[in-house]
Nucleic acid binder design. Sequence first.
DNA 1: GCGTTATTAAACCAATAAGTTAATTAACTA
DNA 2: TAGTTAATTAACTTATTGGTTTAATAACGC
Lengths: 109, 109
Amino acid sequence: MTLSALADPTRRAILARLATGEASVSELAEPFDMSLVAVSKHLKVLEKAGLISKGREAQWRPCRLETKPLMQVDDWLEGYRQFWNENLDRLEAYAAALQQEGGADDRSK
Amino acid sequence: MTLSALADPTRRAILARLATGEASVSELAEPFDMSLVAVSKHLKVLEKAGLISKGREAQWRPCRLETKPLMQVDDWLEGYRQFWNENLDRLEAYAAALQQEGGADDRSK
DNA sequence: GCGTTATTAAACCAATAAGTTAATTAACTA
DNA sequence: TAGTTAATTAACTTATTGGTTTAATAACGC
């Protein structure tokens, strides 16, 4: 569910904003060219995904970033990091091999 | 676009499979309880997102994992890694403080 | 209590997503 | 050439998403 919550650019922008500190719903909505209601819905999606939590302070609902789901995404990526490091290694090896050849064996069309 | 491609569990399973090596469309479809056509569509989504590439070998289209978009997700997460490390630091500091207090100043209800 | 401010709920709409079946394309095999 | 296998395209259905507007809830300031 985390990934689908993160799939929307508005929601990612909201998270980026919240990384700089708490903010109320209307504060969060301000930069966007859409209704407050729409933003409120985005916040609900983020909340259900556990990516934010809402407090209550009088009539405001200060939102703050929750990092657990992001850490889980990070964990999920771990399995692939190994994979792309392998690829980088291959690239490096290839570059090194080219270097050594000195372009002597260029069989480009 | 990467994140929305990653939002679907079938597609993530496909990527996981491809992390173990190339596979044809039908091979990729085999474990799923859905039509080959459906899987083919998932593959197209993954391809458009640059998460896989397809070769051609006779009547097969061997698919392989492409890591660039995943690395970009990793980069995107970087901004938040700092954030959750801060939080962990705070937690540690808090735990240390509790330790030092020895529970002497417990003002829980 | 009354109006204002902050937020959510309800009802609705258009676009997209995820699946289906049937038809098409393309390359192998005999 | 005919038949088989691998994959894609087309047309369609249903559910979900992202937005809207209007109404409701709740806490504040007077």
